[in-house]
Design a protein around this nucleic acid. Structure first.
Length: 395
DNA sequence: TCTGGGGTCCTAGGACCC
DNA sequence: TCTGGGGTCCTAGGACCC
């Protein structure tokens, strides 16, 4: 049976948060971000959007478009508190809530909505109550799958409510331009257009007829997309708390440079931040990756996997510097970053490293060495050749 | 347009093992 | 000396999302 999945997306969340504590900002062109060499718009108000200001736009470009733009630096601690209030509010209505990011979530209302309920009224009430209780505005998409719910919350903003039934997919989703499709980004959209795929409907028809060009272009993802565009795909809400698989920090330097001392200082700062965050999350990781962005904005990555997992500032810093020295010493860089990967809980590590396990691990290693040694000896022996002859014969 | 910083997942080649 | 096939891990790069 089809489930009732809602995707709830806060409208211009960071700006709305600022308006809540300073109502005089309402209806004014506001952008969150900073006006520096690397400053971009993180979020902007609907008034600012009227001037053409958009997320991820360089801030100086935004100011060009909208000279009266009010720029605020962003108070992420405050936003985080409001984000928790938002999620807590929805969890009071249904336990099946999956956080998708700071300002959006999926929730399953299948078992909450009684037969005969007016679904539209039900979600309008949620939208209104959230606003009344927290001051936050949201758009809601309601559908049988997460993908359709997500498309629904995007369909009408702000304070939109879009209900998409499986039978409505061709009517509501298929006419949309291909770049509006969740999962198709700035690279794939033009590639698809070049082969005549301009709408989601075009994509659906190509996928349904197993068009080789489209399948090759999208790879494994095409299987998922085929479900999505036909009204199927995941409707499962993952209620588990987010468990990071990597923790990294990066920064754009004050100016492009190849001065190693500056780079080292920056890595020291970044390694400290990564170490601190990993410790706070109770995580250790074995792979350390560094990123160096050149003056053409192209990012280069190098990584190394250590024998022992770590989250120490020194280990992360040392590995980062070694990688940098080996690969990027001659590069003039715009930005650098460091990331700790292959994370596990420290708890798990402690379980793994009980004395018994450690001994067992050692024994296994020794056994493995012996076996390898034997294999090497056997390799050149008549026995091995005989076995191969037999294999050829029987195959 | 002239491009931040936080992530996830996928691909593909090579090393190494059985 | 050249020969298979399957699996895992490491590494680099790329696409996407907010």
């Amino acid at each position: 049976m089809a489930r009732i999945i809602a995707h709830i997306d806060l409208n211009a969340f960071f700006v709305r948060a600022e308006e809540i504590r300073n109502p005089s900002l309402e209806d004014k062109p506001v952008a969150i971000g900073h006006l520096g060499r690397a400053g971009v718009v993180s979020t902007c108000s609907y008034k600012a959007r009227e001037f053409g200001v958009r997320s991820a736009m360089p801030m100086n470009k935004a100011v060009e478009l909208c000279p009266n733009l009010i720029i605020l630096p962003g108070d992420y601690r405050f936003y985080s508190t409001l984000s928790h209030e938002f999620k807590k509010y929805i969890r009071q209505l249904t336990p099946l809530v999956e956080s998708a990011s700071v300002d959006e979530l999926y929730a399953d209302f299948t078992d909450i909505i009684k037969k005969g309920t007016n679904v539209e009224e039900f979600f309008r009430q949620i939208q209104y109550n959230l606003f009344k209780n927290t001051g936050l505005k949201c758009s809601i998409g309601v559908a049988p799958t997460k993908f359709l719910a997500k498309m629904g919350s995007d369909y009408k903003k702000p304070m939109g409510l879009t209900i998409i039934r499986r039978k409505d997919v061709q009517k509501i989703i298929w006419p949309l331009p291909i770049e509006d499709m969740y999962g198709i980004g700035k690279k794939s959209a033009p590639r698809l257009k070049r082969i005549g795929i301009n709408t989601i409907g075009d994509l659906a028809k190509a996928l349904n007829s197993k068009d080789e060009n489209v399948l090759n272009l999208l790879g494994k993802f095409s299987e998922e997309l085929t479900l999505w565009v036909n009204g199927y795909g995941s409707d499962k809400i993952e209620t588990e708390a987010w468990d990071p698989k990597s923790i990294g920090n990066s920064t754009t330097l004050k100016e492009d440079t190849n001065r190693f001392e500056t780079i080292k200082d920056t890595f020291y700062m970044l390694a400290s931040e990564v170490s601190e965050r990993a410790k706070k999350e109770g995580k250790i990781g074995s792979t350390i990756q560094i990123m160096a962005k050149d003056t053409d904005y192209k990012a280069h990555n190098k990584s190394i996997t250590l024998v022992n997992k770590t989250n120490s500032e020194k280990d992360i810093y040392d590995a980062a510097i070694k990688l940098y020295e080996k690969n990027f010493l001659d590069l003039t860089v715009r930005a650098v970053g460091v990331c700790l990967q292959n994370l596990i809980d420290i708890k798990e590590m402690k379980v793994q490293m009980t004395f018994y396990d450690y001994q067992k691990h050692e024994e296994e290693s020794k056994t493995k060495l012996l076996i390898n040694d034997l294999n090497r000896k056997i390799k050149g022996s008549p026995l091995k050749r005989a076995s191969e002859v037999k294999k050829d014969g029987t195959n």
